[in-house]
Design a protein around this nucleic acid. Structure first.
Lengths: 217, 217, 217, 217
DNA sequence: AATGAATGAGGATTCATTCAT
DNA sequence: TATGAATGAATCCTCATTCAT
């Protein structure tokens, strides 16, 4: 097993080899999908010999698993941080969505793979959504539970369901971006999208006028 | 030569045999995923001979395509109907979400396949989200555009983004149900989830009290 | 799974396909050894497509297993028959050795594979000598036990050990023939070898004169 | 530059390291068979680095060859010694079998490898039985030829065939021990087995009574 | 329409061997 | 000597698709 200990990784010659392959895998998985990608593609993309991929990763699935860990663990940690920060529920939600958008900005390929390949994997594989989707759900549910306790949430609202909706909103938005429905190169547009997403989630889509209906219900 | 009764059947109604295979495909795709499913599995599930599947469907991908058409076309039509019905935006949204939940109730396996296998297919295949995600987005966007014109939508809200969020909310919720994160064993629970989802989407998650913040922003 | 039921097998077109592959496997295994043989070789030798081998046999090991069954089961049955026939011990032993020599005459390739590839397989595989060697040992031991009970065996002789020796003698002789150390190109030579083997096993190698020593020990 | 002490070590005595690897190879070959053993296994078993194995042995086959030399040369020499010792044929045979049993006692693993991996190697490899089986056969044949000349062997007996039978007897017996059919831990049992083996080989299995038949043939 | 045997390209995985340090 | 990363050919097995009946 490779070291990875050396100080400044990614030098290319030695330590970064594992990392190089991992990045290549993300690249290829993002481009062709997990099933469409061949190990040979990954090797070529990484510029290493075929066999070396197997030196660092036991199998194709293990490679995907590692991609998941790399792309996901950091993300989940940051989401948790945002969800547990001090501030109003609105702030937290803005924070959580912000984490999602940042992740996309920093590593859209990684986001793509996690979103399209892993989060939706068939239940059979160990790499199912249980961990991905479930993790996030739990984090979100806690956040909403707390808000509920403080009277910030509408009465009768189910925290878990809220969490699911929040995740859905984020995912859907990122998917829209991935699909090109929203221009990803336009920073301002991206920011606006985030803002709006927050707003809708907090206060709904209805205008003040239409919202009057709300009182009457 | 036997039968002349339903010679040009392949178009609409589907012969019994064809339908059987199609249902089997949905079943197997739902269970093992498109890539994990073998044509042999489909044949076995349908209780027909190996080669017969190819008698009715040109290829594995064509089979998926047919699954998509069957599971999707009706769904999209009903969504469109709900989106274009008369009534307030709230009514329409309730209608749209209702269509989604009904589809799940009637054919959760089909929903699963469309959600997990087709909506997320790699861009390369002909069967990309263009049709699935894009269709819905367009329908939703139109609905929101109209609402915006009528002043029912909060000012500055992007209709397309709203549509994406609505789809995301629905999808996420159904996914949560599929994964068992949200309990939906009884009708009542399912109904409650739908109700809440609608409420959140329309008016946001904030309580009246917390919502006061809104004015100050 | 293929039928194999049709009356006159081995016609070539259909029923005999499995058999054809099996014979080809014996041929190739005999020529190159199990590890040296590639599935492609077997397919080519059989004159069938690569994939067809897997249609009839689950894996390379399963193929070897089938070779074993085919080559062994009949052999073991005939040995058992010879061992349980009526007659003197000498007759039985002559019979048993005769079976071995006949098997070689009829299908030296099959004998080779069983002797060199299976009987000596590493203990890990299911196909170990336990079954091959063990079966024969048991059969032989019973035969010698009975002879012992009847006073035909020298006193103090262990039946199991005798069985092992008999098997060893047969195996070694066939091996010597396979290796070309003992000439067995013509029937007469083969017959002579069998005769001598029997004689040695029954009465030892010593001449009458030297055997006198026996009394003095 | 360190050491000049045992520069040309590779020839006879073997450096410690080389010997360690050789022993490890025997161990692993015995456990998993030549084909089932990986060079990595050998390295791990020896507790040395992967590449070091190649420092001492040119290739995997060369390693097996060395194992053969180590395990075999000494054995063959001792067998030859026993076969050419002065004394009656009975003494010699007792001696030869004794050598085999001793070898097993001292290094059952080595015996296993020679017996199962080398003696039966496919004819293609340089390491064929020519050397192993053939060597022994020749030695044995000479012994029996001499006995024949002296009238100690029954008339018409083929010395080479006798040798093959003797080897077979020994091998079969050792195999029986390896397989656990004969308890190897019981020194007395081992001794008895050897005794009996000798007896059978010299005088056959028949009892005095049954042997009377002999005269009448 | 129905069957299931036959085909063969595709791709993951292994592992002996080499090489830079 | 010693290390273990790097290489890539070899080969098993899968499975979509075709075909003869």
């Amino acid at each position: 097993m490779p070291s990875g200990s050396k100080a400044r990784a990614n030098t290319g010659t030695d330590t970064g080899r594992r990392r190089t392959i991992l990045r290549a895998a993300i690249e290829v998985f993002a481009r062709k999908g997990y099933h469409g990608a061949r190990m040979a593609d990954v090797a070529r993309e990484a510029g290493v010999a075929y066999g070396l991929v197997y030196h660092y990763f036991q199998s194709k699935e293990a490679l995907l698993e590692s991609v998941f860990e790399v792309s996901w663990s950091g993300f989940a940690a940051r989401v948790r941080e945002a969800a547990q920060a001090t501030g109003t529920l609105a702030d937290k939600i803005r924070g959580v969505l912000g984490v999602g958008f940042d992740a996309y900005r920093v590593d859209s390929k990684g986001v793509r793979v996690v979103l399209l390949e892993i989060a939706r994997a068939p239940a059979s594989s160990r790499l199912n959504r249980e961990s991905a989707f479930g993790d996030l759900s739990r984090i979100g549910a806690e956040m909403f539970q707390e808000a509920l306790d403080r009277g910030q949430l509408r009465n009768g609202t189910d925290p878990l369901l809220c969490a699911a909706l929040l995740i859905g909103a984020l995912e859907s938005l990122l998917t829209a971006i991935l699909l090109g429905l929203v221009d990803a190169h336009d920073e301002a547009a991206l920011e606006r999208a985030k803002q709006q997403c927050t707003e809708v989630f907090l206060n709904g889509v209805l205008s003040e006028a239409a919202s009057g209906v709300r009182a009457s219900r």
